[in-house]
Amino acid sequence: MNVSIASSRAEGALVEITDVRKSYFSNRVETPVLHGINLHMQRGDFMAVMGQSGSGKSTLMNILGCLDTPTSGTYRLAGVDVEKQSRAELATLRNRTIGFVFQSFNLLKRMTILDNVALPLIYAGVSRKASRDRAQTQLDKVGLGELANRQPNQLSGGQQQRVAIARALVADPPLILADEPTGNLDTRTSNDIMALLNELNRERGQSIILVTHEPDIAAHAKRLVRLKDGLVLYDGPATEGLRQLKTDDSIATIAEAAL
C-alpha cells in the first residue's frame, strides 16, 4: 500500500494543499465554499485554523481529515494523493495517518473507555489483546488508566476529551486533527486539554491542526491560518495573526457602533 511508502518519506511535507476548491451542489445549483486554498504544513508543526461560520472552516477541516474530497485541486497527505483514493483506501489512510479529536468527544456509547481507545487499532487489524494493551498504555499517559472499564457517560467532559485524545494517539498517527476540542468544556478544563496538546507537540513533535473560533485557544498554537469567504486571509505566526485579528475585530466593532 502506498501509505507505507509515504510514511518512509518523513522529510516531505505532511500536508500539501494546492489550489483546493470545494463546491456543494443542490438541485444543480453550485454553491462554492472554498475558492482555492493553498496550505503547506511540515511535520512537528502546531497550526490553528480560525474563521467565522461560513468561512469554509468546516469544509476545509473535512477535506484535511479525508472525510470529504475536494471538487478540484490536489491534497497530498503524508505523500499520498488523497483525491485518487477509493473509499476503503481513504478509511485506511485516516486510520493510519490522522487522529481525530471532536468537539462533542464522539466516544461510542455502551463501550468501555478501554474499548473506545482500542478501536482504531482493531480497524488496523491489530489483535484484540495487543489493542487493549496499547490502549491501556495510552490511557495511562493521559492520566485515565484507572477508569479504563468505565462507560463514556460515567466520565466528565474533560475526561471524555482526554479519552478521545488517547484514542487519537493510540495508532501513533503523524497528524492530530482537533475540531473545536474545547468547544464543550469550561475554561479551566479547556486549558488542561490545550496544555496536553501543547505537551504532545513540544515533547513528541506531534503535528497538530486545531480548528477553533476562540482566539485564546488559538494562542496555544505556533502558527495561525485565518479563513474568510473560502480564502486564506492570514497564514503566519500565531502571535502576529492574533494581534491582527484583534485589530480587525475592533475595527469591525467601531464600524458596527458607527452604524
Binding site: 472525510l67 473509499r87 476503503a88 485506511t92 478501536l119
Partner: peptide, 16 residues
C-alpha cells in the same frame, strides 16, 4: 448513523 460516522472517521472501511 453518528456511530457509523465515528467508526468511519477512525478507520472503519465500508466493508467493516
Amino acid at each position: 448513523t453518528r456511530e457509523i460516522g465515528i467508526r468511519m472517521a477512525i478507520g472503519a472501511r465500508p466493508s467493516d
